[in-house]
Design a protein around this nucleic acid. Structure first.
Lengths: 224, 224
DNA sequence: ATTCAGTCTGAATAGTTGTTCACTTCTTCA
DNA sequence: TGAAGAAGTGAACAACTATTCAGACTGAAT
């Protein structure tokens, strides 16, 4: 007498799993990683605490998967923006702007993914997240270098530094406060993008142009 | 019968206090903030766990004071380096280089002070630490702007971004690995300094010169 | 020498959450 | 329909450390 999972059950299981992940994501977006606790997440997902453990072996795994998921979404958004740009420099500008806008529109979540203290070990997935996004940026910088728009440089280190600059300036404890104001927000995004482009060697005048170009389509994102 | 603390006792109390702080600092330098636990710190300082609480009301206070102390030392080193420089641009370069070198020579401690997850709330002292150092950088940037060496800009935001770039590139999880090699280390310091200077608008050629100037005296520090 | 405020000790306590597991409920299949 | 395996439940448990506190000790004052 073999028990076989019927299609309906498989679907329900999958739905539950993503409901739990989704609840975790909501919690993180609302209150940072500190708010991602098993009991509250279980309540949000309409299951018992024990059930969470039928889907994730530990809290660390749950959070790791959350980080991976958010990071994957982010990476694809960056790729999309960069690929829509006309040339390598524009692509780099678009990538930077996309990161800035996304990070700003989900500050708590971004902080949680990136740097917030968590009581379990999630260094591996955080590392992977950073590596993916930094790697993507590095590729874009490299493309601009190969196109002759930028001086030769250690692109990996540069990409890492840019990420750090964006994060600290936008979600760090010293980040500007009144970023609810959309104008202030746009200015901030432009400023950090300009800073980032100049850092890798884009000439000032050209950088300004790229920033404006890159920021314009991103307005839609800011609105969302 | 009034009990009055004799000079000797006062000295002993002060010595104990700083022994505890010092033990905490050693622990943090060796194993990050995670290693700053009351019992081990007490052992290192040759006192009992309870005694720690006669000097610091809580672990949070102990760590906060540790952060403040390290931060104060760092700030004065930055000031010293900047003030020894011949002009505002050199001063900025010197400040950036000093931060980079210090952070690299005490990686675990720096990571602990800046960003490592801690189980108690130390946001206030971390904020103060960042504000002080970022403020100092902002002043240096501002001086260079006023001297006409840099374009006008949001100096506070720029300073914050530079700090983020330095930290992420040098002690973040993606930081280059083999920084034990002094040559690699010097190159890395030069690269990030160059990146930082270009970010705020120093022209590339001029930036290279400033980096070399600023890195040369810092060699002594690297050796230390 | 004696007293006692001040200091130190370290085992016991406490509070917090992730994790488990004996039991219930649901689903499959003969 | 009923037997058996899967999934779900939630109260109890476990582990980890910061913190406490009753009693021991130190040394200043008389």
């Amino acid at each position: 007498m073999v028990y076989r999972r019927t299609h309906q059950v498989v679907k329900r299981l999958a739905a539950r799993r993503s409901a739990i992940l989704s609840a975790a994501r909501d919690a993180a977006a609302a209150g940072g990683m500190a708010a991602v606790q098993i009991a509250p997440v279980a309540v949000r997902a309409n299951v018992a605490a024990g059930t969470v453990y039928r889907y994730f072996p530990s809290k660390a795994e749950l959070i790791s998967e959350l980080i991976t998921e958010v990071s994957r979404d982010e990476l694809s958004a960056i790729r999309r923006a960069a690929e829509a740009a006309p040339g390598p420099s524009s692509a780099l500008a678009a990538a930077v702007t996309t990161i800035a806008v996304h990070v700003l529109s989900q500050r708590k979540l971004a902080w949680g993914i990136l740097a917030e203290p968590v009581d379990v070990d999630v260094t591996a997935s955080r590392l992977a997240s950073r590596r993916d996004i930094s790697g993507e940026l590095a590729m874009r910088i490299d493309a601009a270098v190969r196109a002759g728009h930028l001086p030769a440089q250690d692109t990996a280190l540069a990409a890492t530094a840019l990420l750090g600059a964006l994060h600290e300036a936008l979600v760090g404890p010293l980040a500007p406060s009144n970023l609810e104001d959309p104008i202030k927000l746009r200015d901030t995004v432009q400023t950090v993008t300009l800073l980032a482009l100049r850092a890798v060697g884009v000439m000032d005048a050209r950088a300004r142009g790229l920033v404006v170009q890159a920021t314009t389509p991103a307005k839609a994102l800011v609105g969302a």
